[in-house]
Design a protein around this nucleic acid. Structure first.
Lengths: 144, 144
DNA sequence: CGTTTTTCATTGATATATCAATATTATGAA
DNA sequence: TTCATAATATTGATATATCAATGAAAAACG
């Protein structure tokens, strides 16, 4: 088949670009004094946006394993950015709340994260980004 | 700025789709009796395509850390798919060769990998894939 | 009711990624 | 030629991902 190589390339580029962007974000945040990964930042943002969700809800929202969520929350908790509040009526659950320190952290790092994202999309048209979004979404559907 | 959300979405989708595709590939390969990850398979393919490279060359080719390469090679070596041959003239280096078992493994799993890749790109036009490739490539450049 | 099944969160084992530090060699410069 | 520097591969610490197994609690149901 003619487009075997072309097909392989998309997968290689996806994987590659994800790794590059995470590395880039980590470096930028660190340089500005923020000891946080982009994955942690995203979880922090989700907790801020929709308070009191359970870890299962959070896992579904970001499409990650609850095991991954537990570990990321442990790290955020260690940095005093997040707290788990036991649910009185269902003792299996914990509600997740962002701390005051977490709010400040989120607000301050937000500009850095946005700058990183813009930098990554430099010289790319909005319509090309939309096409890419559509393709990535369809691929996810195809493999789910 | 209006496209903050749109920008964030590309990063989310990239990360998400990469994870979904790796999970999907792992499951498909496992179901067909191949105990190998897609990352390991790619390394195996590279060693097959260009024999006798050093680990540094391999790392550069796939844009991974030499530490990652060492660990992936350890796993491939444990499965007897790859061997390291010490370089006589430069004792720091090892040449990498695929074993006979590795060759067979590669050949047999190749169809499965291609089927996975095609399945993932179902209902997506070649031109949209090309656009996506171009976008991903530009993003990588922007953040390097 | 009491018993089975589900759900939630955590933990363990493993794979991959990062960076930092190391040991061993090779190379280059004084 | 010796001594400092660079390159190669590995290992350790840590972050994130997977799946599988667990304990505890809630829900379902016969």
């Amino acid at each position: 088949m003619k487009n075997e190589k072309l097909n392989a390339v998309v997968y290689f580029l996806m994987d590659n670009t994800v790794r590059i962007s995470k590395k880039y974000a980590l470096k930028q945040l660190k340089e500005k004094g923020y000891n946080i990964t982009i994955d942690q930042w995203v979880i922090l943002l989700r907790i801020h946006e929709k308070k009191l969700q359970t870890q299962v809800e959070l896992a579904v929202a970001v499409n990650k394993d609850t095991a991954s969520i537990t570990r990321i929350l442990d790290l955020l908790h260690g940095k005093k950015l997040v707290r788990r509040i036991p649910n009185e009526y269902d003792k299996r659950k914990s509600a997740l709340v962002i701390t005051t320190k977490g709010e400040a952290y989120l607000r301050e790092a937000k500009e850095i994260v946005e700058a990183i994202r813009e930098e990554g999309l430099k010289n790319i048209s909005a319509s090309d980004i939309e096409t890419t979004n559509r393709v990535l979404k369809q691929m996810a559907i195809n493999m789910t």
